[in-house]
Design a protein around this nucleic acid. Structure first.
Length: 485
RNA sequence: GGCUCCUUGGUCAAGUGGUUAAGACACCGCCCUUUCACGGCGGCUACAGGGGUUCGAAUCCCCUAGGAGUCACCA
């Protein structure tokens, strides 16, 4: 039985790199009929952010990545929060001490800092723990531990040889032992470090496949030494390349890059984000590009994972989002768009249903909607130049003539249905031997003040209504007369 | 700096010794059209560099360069 886990630290929102790791981990498990487990790695009490655990639950739920076992859903391998497993780790560490694979260390931070500074002065960048406490007798070590003195437990890395592991993506990875440090396994507060906790918990929880970021790639050989010391079988590792902001920098909240929650709030739809993220660093091998989550499960294959870092390209996300919104059921669109319409049009008597029809295929990201429809609330400042359009064969002079002719015609209409307005303007064009565009363009500009709008002249006229339309045409004529002088 | 890993167009990427080196986003042009968008058609741009191996290399080997990750009682 395949068992995978997503093991975030509760330090805040779920960032996009984390979301992708979670997604791939989920996909791999589901593709192979296995279990996807959520484990909270909160052994660093100082960095923990209040409420972050709930944020992780919420984000995963919103992403649709349902875990089979986890803190809030239970399971046979709990608890799934590491601080609640605290008592488990020390006995395993002691087992390693007994076998010589680890040892207690009583060096104070101050003493360490001092020796380190001295060593750095001679050979910069070469510092490793000097195995000072390894030379201590077992008896003394036991006595000092029993006396309540503060201590940590360190991994005893061999002085020679190499440590290695097989990565499902990167292949054989190995590192010379003499470049590896004797990292702390159990901290002075009794909690394990990541180095130790992930090994113990992955084993205890029966994890068969571990997917995680490449930041762990270079320390994984050390973890394998631990598995070997216990005589345990290590899981299969797949290290995932980072998601980059640009060629030189990882995506990170520190620099204001958006989290999953942020994107949702900006009006990106869940499925578009998932689809886009899935394709960032993974290829299905064929030319499909639209995938629902179940389709991703079906298509997912480790072979399609890329080893090189991928740059997060917002343009492409926007494109996916536009596609997903366009394909969305109209009623769903109307519902989602309404609060965004309200941001610009609150209080206006506006046919949102008609507006939504016009906006449905023109919405890229919802947070851009207010700006797109704001002209319906008020005509923006505009330059008279936009009355000039080469292809429409219009200029301010013709525009003024058209508006002067159209004004009484529109004022006389019994209603302002789109067809009514259209017929009137088309007849005007015919009667004056003008091109359709020569009539439509000036009227639309007067109505909107914009060179491009969602919907054309008649749709906008309808949305605005007769009174407001006439008012705007009057204002447009006034401006044209003024500008002509 | 040591160690580890990576390197196909601006971006995401297919490609695993023989291809006219796919496709998508972006960009540009044309068409459609009462604007924009949509849609249709077309175009631009790539195997980091240098050595090998081979009849033949984006694909295998070596070197160089560039980039990333890591070197915590953080994960």
């Amino acid at each position: 039985m395949i068992r995978t886990r997503f093991a975030p630290s509760p330090t805040g929102y779920l960032h996009l790199g984390g979301l992708r790791t979670a997604l791939y981990t989920y996909l791999f498990a589901k593709k192979n009929g296995g279990k996807f487990i959520l484990r909270i790695e909160d052994t660093d009490q100082e960095r923990e952010v209040e409420g972050a655990v709930e944020l992780i639950f919420q984000s995963l739920r919103q992403a649709g990545l349902h875990y089979d076992e986890g803190p809030d859903v239970g399971g046979a391998f709990g608890p799934y929060i590491q601080t609640q497993r605290k008592a488990l780790y020390l006995p395993y560490a002691k087992q390693l001490v007994d076998s010589g694979a680890a040892y207690p260390c009583f060096c104070t931070r101050e003493a360490l800092a001092e020796r380190r500074a001295k060593a750095e002065a001679e050979t910069p960048g070469q510092w490793k723990y000097d195995k000072h406490c390894l030379r201590m007798s077992k008896e003394e070590a036991r006595r000092r531990m029993d006396s309540g003195e503060s201590f940590v437990i360190r991994q005893n890395i061999p002085l020679t040889g190499t440590a290695s592991f097989e990565d499902a993506l990167y292949g054989h990875v190995e590192a010379p032992c003499d470049t590896l440090d004797d990292n702390v396994l159990i901290k002075a507060d009794g909690l394990p470090t990541y180095n130790f906790a992930n090994v113990i918990d992955d084993h205890l929880m029966g994890i068969t496949h571990v997917m995680r970021g490449t930041e762990y790639l270079s320390s994984t050989p050390k973890y394998n030494l631990l598995y070997a010391a216990f005589g345990w079988e290590a899981p299969v590792y797949m290290h995932l390349s980072p998601v980059m902001k640009d060629a030189g920098r990882k995506l990170s909240k520190r620099y204001g890059d958006p989290s999953f929650e942020d994107l949702l709030a900006q009006g990106y739809v869940r499925d578009a984000i998932i689809n886009f993220i899935a394709l960032l660093g993974w290829s299905p091998g064929d030319e499909r590009e639209f995938f629902t989550l179940p389709e991703l499960v079906e298509a997912f294959d480790v072979k399609g994972l890329s080893k090189a870092p991928a740059i997060f390209n917002t343009e492409k996300l926007v494109w996916f989002n536009h596609e997903y919104i366009s394909r969305m059921d109209f009623e769903d669109y109307l519902q989602m768009a309404t609060p965004w319409f309200d941001k610009a049009l609150a209080g206006k008597n506006m046919d949102y249903r008609r507006l939504a029809q016009l906006m449905h295929t023109r919405t890229e990201v919802f947070d851009r909607v207010p700006d797109q429809v704001r002209f319906l609330a008020e005509v923006p400042e505009y330059d008279l130049d936009i009355y000039t359009h080469k292809k429409m064969k219009t200029d301010p002079e013709i525009s003024l003539q058209v508006l002067e002719l159209a004004r009484p015609l529109l004022a006389a209409l019994p209603n302002f249905a789109e067809e009514t307005v259209k017929d009137a303007l088309m007849q005007l064009a015919e009667a004056q031997e003008l091109k359709t565009g020569q009539v439509m363009w000036p009227v639309r500009i007067a109505l909107s003040g914009l060179a491009s709008t969602p919907g054309g002249t008649t749709e906008i006229a309808y949305l605005l209504g007769q009174a407001e339309s006439l008012r705007r045409i009057d204002a447009g004529m006034a401006r044209l007369r003024e500008g002509g002088r």
